[in-house]
Design a protein around this nucleic acid. Structure first.
Length: 189
DNA sequence: CGAGTTTGACCTGCGC
DNA sequence: GCGCAGGTCAAACTCG
């Protein structure tokens, strides 16, 4: 019996990130294979989902230090307890929060989304201020906090709150002409 | 002129 | 109730 070629997964699984080779990038890449009837909407959706996958992968991959894992786990528990006291739901079921650390000279990581800074605050036991950003997309309520670590000034800690409900704008700017060209060629043959 | 940044004031929750 | 710390607001400012 002839062995059928299994189609590549779509979207492809996120790449394995090296924890020994910072800085970590989570810029989503193009799907390795475009289905024949891929339209802009599908691709946007795919990239958004990939973004999320990559993002979660990064959280898992970059917080490798056991103390950090414990720290973030504890913070999450504390936040959940606080929410319950306020009569709210468990935070994990309401606003997802993700934190990760990146070795970078730049405070602001280019994650493809557009952010507007709405505050900056000096925090206790830290030599560096914490910056507060909101996604500029009108329907998106995602926030992020950026802070450089005192103990290792080469590391920037970024905390995201919420999940984007729109595709990555910068990515779409880059991909739109490319996709149009692919669709044009696909229609010709 | 619009979008983004800065920064002091204000609000809220928490521990004592 | 008070003070502290973290988070947000909003007016003034900057920049392209």
């Amino acid at each position: 019996m002839e062995e059928q070629e299994t189609p590549p997964p779509f979207p492809p699984p996120p790449p394995t990130l090296s924890s020994t080779n910072p800085p970590y990038l989570f810029t989503p890449s193009l799907p390795s294979t475009l289905l024949p009837n891929t339209n802009l909407e599908t691709l946007m959706c795919c990239n958004y989902n990939q973004n999320h996958l990559y993002f979660e992968q990064n959280v898992a991959e970059t917080i490798t230090d056991q103390q950090n894992i414990a720290k973030y786990a504890d913070e999450e528990k504390v936040e959940n307890i606080k929410d319950k006291r306020r009569g709210g739901r468990n935070r994990k079921t309401t606003i997802p929060r993700y934190a990760f650390q990146t070795r970078s000279e730049e405070d602001i990581l280019d994650d493809g989304y557009r952010w507007r800074k709405y505050g900056q605050k000096s925090v206790k036991n830290s030599n560096f201020p914490r910056s507060y950003y909101r996604c500029t997309h009108h329907t998106c309520n995602v926030k992020k906090q950026v802070q450089r670590l005192t103990k290792d000034t080469s590391i920037v800690e970024t905390t995201y709150e919420g999940i984007h409900n729109h595709p990555c704008e910068k990515l779409m700017e880059t991909l739109s002409p490319l996709l149009k060209q692919i669709q044009f060629l696909a229609n010709r043959f």
